[in-house]
Simulated assay, not measured.
Amino acid sequence: MIAMIRHREAKATTMNFVFEHQPVPSVAVEGESARFPVRRIFCVGRNYEAHAREMGKDPSRDPPFFFTKPADAVVDDGIVVPYPPLTQNFHHEAELVVAIGRPGFNVTEGDAWELIWGYAVGNDLTRRDLQLDARDKGRPWDWGKAFDNSAVCGPIRRAHETGRLEKGAIRLSVNGTVRQEADLSDLIWSVPEIVSILSSAVQLLPGDLVYTGTPAGVGALVPGDVCKVEIEGLRSITTPIGAALS
């Protein structure tokens, strides 16, 4: 068995591709030059009661649901995000991002903390009109959520530096005006609950990011806007919105 594994590793190092592959998507790490490689991006839907209400849904504590974004949708702090195609209603969503650093499958809430490598500030950018149209027709959300440059993520701060993030202010402003403001303690499903439930469906592995949901106050962005997201204890992120790609 060991010989077989070594053979596979040797093949992997000499593997050829039919064209040059894209760079590995990654996120900055606070205070370090090394970056965090992104494997998958999971997002929790409607995880703040007030946001569930503003989206016209019952905020009762039903089991959480998840959607995904491609790893290469990730965008660093400070990068200009072009106004995306196909939408007339482009929204911001401030979120706490959990970075997974250890593998785990079907873990308990208590053990979920051990999988967390760190935390970051995120912005789950959304083509709201496409999302709602898909929702109303019973179709997947991909075109509303999983598009280019849709997952802004700030530098990850290691978990041993932050401790367990169970409370703390989360705030989003556009051009200096606050639009979203809540506390992480308002999450319907807490960080360890989210990680535990997600791990019952898929094997979490190092490099996975989990966007934990957004508070009420989501709203439209237009070219020229500057969107800032802050979470107590983490480095804030700023995202300028650029013109649409032509």
Rank of each mutant, 00 (worst) to 15 (best):
E93H: 03
I100D: 08
D72V: 05
P85E: 15
A73L: 02
W113Q: 08
V107K: 08
G101N: 13
G78N: 07
E109N: 13
V97L: 10
T87L: 02
I79R: 15
I100M: 11
N106V: 03
H91N: 03
V81P: 08
A94P: 10
V80P: 00
Y83D: 01
A94S: 13
P84L: 00
T108I: 08
A71N: 02
P103M: 06
I79H: 15
E114C: 04
D76M: 06
W117I: 00
E109W: 14
E114K: 10
E114N: 15
I100W: 15
V98C: 10
G118M: 13
D77E: 02
L86V: 12
G78F: 06
A73P: 06
T87Y: 04
G104I: 11
P103Q: 07
G118W: 12
W113I: 00
N89S: 15
W117M: 12
V97A: 04
A99P: 11
P85S: 14
N106C: 00
I79Y: 14
L115P: 09
V97Q: 03
L115M: 09
G78Y: 05
E109G: 10
L115N: 02
G101Y: 12
G110C: 06
V81F: 00
I100G: 05
A71M: 08
L86D: 14
V80R: 03
E95H: 03
D76Y: 12
P82H: 01
D72I: 05
V97C: 06
L96T: 06
G110M: 09
D72Q: 06
P85G: 08
L96A: 14
G110Y: 10
P82A: 14
P85C: 08
A73H: 00
Q88N: 14
H91S: 14
F105R: 11
H91V: 08
A112I: 13
A112M: 01
E109A: 12
E95G: 07
W117R: 13
P84D: 03
G78I: 08
F90G: 06
V74M: 11
A94W: 06
T108P: 01
E114L: 06
V81C: 10
H92M: 13
W113G: 11
W113N: 09
V80T: 12
I100N: 04
